[in-house]
Amino acid sequence: MIRLISIFVGLGFAGVALISLAFGAYAYATDEPVAHLPYKKPEKVDFSFNGPFGKWDYGQLQRGYKVYKEVCAACHGIKFVSFRDLADLGYTEAQVKAEAASWTVPGIDPDTGEATTRPGLPTDPFPEPYPNNVAAAAANNNAIPPDLSLMTKARNDGSNYVASLLAGYQDEPDPEVLAEFPEAAPGPGLYHNPYFKNLNLAMSPPIAIDDQVAYDDGTKATVRQMSEDVAAFLTWTAEPSLIKRKQTGWPVMIFLLFATVLAYLSKQQIWSAVKPKKD
């Protein structure tokens, strides 16, 4: 009896699966294809960390941090990064302490127990620009700015995507695109960017003019340069161990190759005395 019930239950599941497959095939065959908005793929940037032998350009990372601090930090946090992590960018201990102290972080008054603010310490994470999502949405046309700690890992081809997006704002879509896709026109409170999948986003161009940030090393701060620098910095925040992982990978590959050759020679040695039988 139990076996008979099991057979009927199995047939029921199989029938449901076949019906679902039939409906799905019918919908696929009859539905008209959806026309996707013609967004652009990110432009390739020759970052120093690209490729198997890539390295960090610490000058670029420091410039990118300055762009983040002076431009992006007003709306976007990097909550998974602490001030002491800046030592990995080539800053000295004294510079890290001074940099942390230049930020204001939430604190507690030891006398009253009330919430207050204080200068940052190296052990503090970077502060959030807004106390909560409600305040963030209220200050940004109901759009909540995302945290940027892992942004280059969360987006396909993240480093190139961030650099292209920041430098790719346009006043309006190309006439050909607008003629074919009228919905590509930016609505109220939106800004056109061909590298964004919806072509329009709520974030106004954060990097709008050259020399918006004054670089300490004398590098010309063009819109493209600042965009690439902050993209490199956000690549580091998302994966600070990127270069160490690449450097570790080569010895591991060499060891595995050596172990494979050694295992093959051992097999040859062990089975060398065994002669195959003749028919």
Rank of each mutant, 00 (worst) to 15 (best):
V105F: 01
A138T: 07
A167I: 02
L86H: 04
G120I: 01
A163M: 05
T112Q: 09
A135N: 05
P106Q: 05
P122K: 01
Y91R: 15
G77Y: 02
V71P: 11
D147C: 03
E183N: 10
Y91D: 07
E176G: 01
Q95A: 14
P110S: 03
R118Y: 02
T117N: 04
E172N: 11
L86P: 05
A185H: 08
F126A: 02
V67M: 11
S149Y: 08
Y161C: 00
L150M: 08
G90C: 05
G189K: 06
A154C: 02
T117H: 08
Y195V: 03
A74N: 09
S102C: 10
G187Q: 14
Y68G: 04
I78P: 02
G120H: 00
C75S: 12
P119Q: 05
Y130L: 07
N132I: 09
D85G: 05
G113E: 14
A163S: 15
I108H: 04
N193A: 00
Y169V: 07
A143Q: 12
Y130D: 07
A167K: 12
E114Q: 15
Q170R: 15
G158V: 04
A143K: 06
L121K: 13
Y161P: 00
A87S: 15
S82A: 14
K69D: 14
S102R: 07
G189I: 06
A179Y: 02
Y169C: 11
V105N: 04
E99C: 03
A135R: 06
D157S: 14
P145T: 04
L178I: 06
A101S: 14
G168Y: 00
E180I: 08
E183P: 03
S164Q: 03
S164T: 13
G120K: 00
V71F: 06
P122H: 00
N160L: 03
E99F: 14
V96F: 08
P175A: 15
P188H: 09
Q170A: 13
E128P: 00
M151Y: 12
I108N: 10
G187E: 15
K66M: 15
G90K: 10
A179T: 09
A73V: 01
S102F: 12
T123H: 07
G90Y: 08
A167M: 06
P127D: 05
Y91G: 02
F80K: 13
V177E: 09
D85L: 03
N142Q: 15
R118S: 02
I144M: 04
G168P: 01
L148A: 01
V71S: 10
K66G: 03
A139E: 06
P122G: 00
A74D: 02
P122I: 00
E128A: 09
D88Q: 12
I78M: 12
E128Y: 08
A154L: 13
Q95K: 12
L89T: 14
E176M: 05
Y68V: 01
L150Y: 11
F181I: 13
D111M: 07
G158R: 04
T152E: 03
A137G: 13
E172H: 13
F181L: 14
T112A: 13
I144K: 04
L148H: 01
L150T: 11
P127Y: 04
A101G: 13
